[in-house]
Design a protein around this nucleic acid. Structure first.
Ligand code: FES
Ligand code: FES
Lengths: 144, 144
DNA sequence: AGTTAATTGGACAAAATTGTCCGATTTGAT
DNA sequence: ATCAAATCGGACAATTTTGTCCAATTAACT
């Protein structure tokens, strides 16, 4: 499964994106309450997202985190995950073998690789914007 | 991803199953060398597989682990995983929310749930026997 | 009977992940 | 200028996962 860190990252971005308006910023506390996460840990993750240039931050009173409309539209879910846990997400062998490939497949490769590939494509093709405007039907859930 | 413990469990069983003959037993050391895993940790995992009644063990000189032909045929990969890490594997939300369902979906549910379901079905429909007789083509890899 | 080879079970250790705390810095408002 | 509110960075702590060690037990062989 996804690491907690990545989960918090995605949830944070969904909250910030879904509520972004011009001139509005969200503090760590705002985000942590909205997504029901430990504040100090969430702070670290927001810092990583700033470093990855997905969001921007403003220090000092009245400061906080924002995301631009263009980032909402362009940021793919897969990019968020990779920003947090590096590149090894998309390509790892189900059994942990060092190089997963058709040439040197493990016994479950045939079963696993196509599904992993579909998940990767899905995460690559879905942006924050897609998720927050999810055909409007059901209001989504970030807390549980 | 899968836990190391589950990975070692699957690899151990594949090795034992693929090499099983009447009267042959494999020691912890045999298995650990074959699948390139830490012996003491592998020992714990083999104990869990004995507790789950997937393999049997014989203590003392000449002892070791065996698997019956019927277990090779009947043991599904999903059962191995659940024997090691419990039931929460098949149903967890991608974002870690406590109950994943159509009724109360998180933003990525629509994308993730069907793929998770396909993986579950795949792991449910594949047995040890299927994996070790993988249409014979490529000899598979358990070490890396 | 004694020795050897093996699993079993328990306690322990190391590493990775998750989470906390606090001082330094920056910014806005009084 | 001072104060309050906020991020930033670093060190630290707790928890989970991974991994080790060893004594106890069991079984085969001589
Ligand atoms: S080699 Fe194991 S999934 Fe590809
Ligand atoms: S609710 Fe998140 S994957 Fe189903």
């Amino acid at each position: 499964m996804l690491s907690k860190a990545s989960q918090y990252a995605i949830k944070s971005l969904l909250f910030i994106s879904a509520n972004q308006q011009v001139g509005v910023r969200f503090s760590v506390k705002d985000v942590a309450i909205a997504i029901d996460s430990p504040p100090a840990f969430t702070s670290k993750i927001l810092q990583q997202l700033v470093a990855a240039k997905i969001i921007t931050s403003v220090k000092g009173s009245g400061g906080g985190f924002e995301i631009s409309t263009s980032k909402i539209v362009s940021t793919k879910v897969i990019s968020i995950i990779k920003a947090i846990e590096g590149d090894h997400f998309s390509s790892g062998c189900f059994l942990g073998l060092p190089d997963c490939s058709e040439k040197n497949p493990c016994p479950v490769h045939k079963l696993y690789a196509p599904l992993r590939e579909k998940l990767n494509q899905g995460l690559y093709n879905v942006t924050l914007d897609d998720l927050i405007n999810n055909k409007g039907k059901q209001p989504f859930n970030l807390k549980g």
